[in-house]
Design a protein around this nucleic acid. Structure first.
Lengths: 166, 166
DNA sequence: ATACATGCAAACCTTTTGCGACAAC
DNA sequence: GTTGTCGCAAAAGGTTTGCATGTAT
């Protein structure tokens, strides 16, 4: 019998702040940590949760630090390239999660309500990487997504809705 | 050491043709297997590969059996509901694969060129379902997607492109 | 001056929908 | 006639881009 037990997912201690890591990344490319970028990276790392571009635009607008939609999208791309964020391409939108100071893990995604649940299972991590390698996929940057229907959605037979990410 | 060996994925013998299964499904709902729908289900099941809506529209148009974009999308939804097709929500589009007469399996998805590779690993199938169940996700309808970067993409450093599905 | 960033609006892409025309029973 | 389907064109939703303006060396 397989063991579905999943390990805890808790922050890894890192020496550099996300902001510093971002600044460093930008400097190497001859770019700058501007005001809007700093606001974004700080806001994003102020809470550990999944989010999307629209949420960011809304939150910052509501807190009086409005940043244009294009800047948000452009900065998100930079943060991904900098290794600070990871993209989760879901049903209709792209969600992001912290990819710095956080251990390797995988996700369950409810295709009905869009809920995302994180889990960490050593066995799956190993198998995932082994299968990837066996198929010539690069060893880093993988992420498993288990698509399914969560309990609340399979109870109610309502069709696809957009709910919050977790 | 984990074993990345994957089993062969070959057709399962089924008693009913996809077209018949579709007709049956439609009849139950008081709907009909019309001409465009028959053309679509036949075309889709004439080759075993992943495809998307746009490809279908293009292929049928090019072979002189043009079917409108809306009908294609509407029929794809029906085929999914009928259990004939399975959706793979990828980066920017939705790909489809046969879900009838084909064994349970998972996918590797290259987020750079959009290539999709199928694999079947017993251990992963078991773990996938165990973890899903442990998190209250419905036992059927799961699919793993390993996101990564395939060998040709990690060699060339070209950015995200849209290539063919496999 | 130069090099890069920003905001806006327009463009883009994929998918969905409203609607008038049409076909089957 | 009623019911359901089709194609068209428009709309919708998420994301990207062109461009003129602005800012820091």
């Amino acid at each position: 019998m397989v063991n579905p037990q999943t390990d805890e997912i808790r922050p890894i201690s890192v020496s550099e702040s996300p902001e510093d890591k971002f600044r460093e990344f930008l400097e190497i490319r001859g770019e700058k940590l501007t005001d809007p970028r700093r606001v974004l990276v700080r806001h994003i790392y102020s809470t550990h949760k999944h989010f999307d571009a629209d949420e960011l635009v809304r939150d910052l607008h509501d807190s009086g630090r409005a940043i244009s939609r294009s800047t948000v999208y452009r900065t998100l791309r930079l943060l991904v390239d900098a290794g600070l964020l990871r993209e989760l391409r879901l049903t209709n939108r792209t969600a992001y999660e912290h990819d710095y100071g956080y251990p390797d893990h995988d996700h369950l995604h409810c295709t009905s309500c869009n809920k995302v649940v994180e889990f960490r299972n050593e066995e799956i991590l190993k198998l995932r990487d082994a299968v990837s390698r066996a198929n010539g996929f690069r060893a880093s940057g993988h992420r498993f997504l288990i698509e399914g229907v969560c309990s609340s959605c399979s109870r109610s037979h309502s069709p696809r809705r957009r709910l919050d990410l977790i």
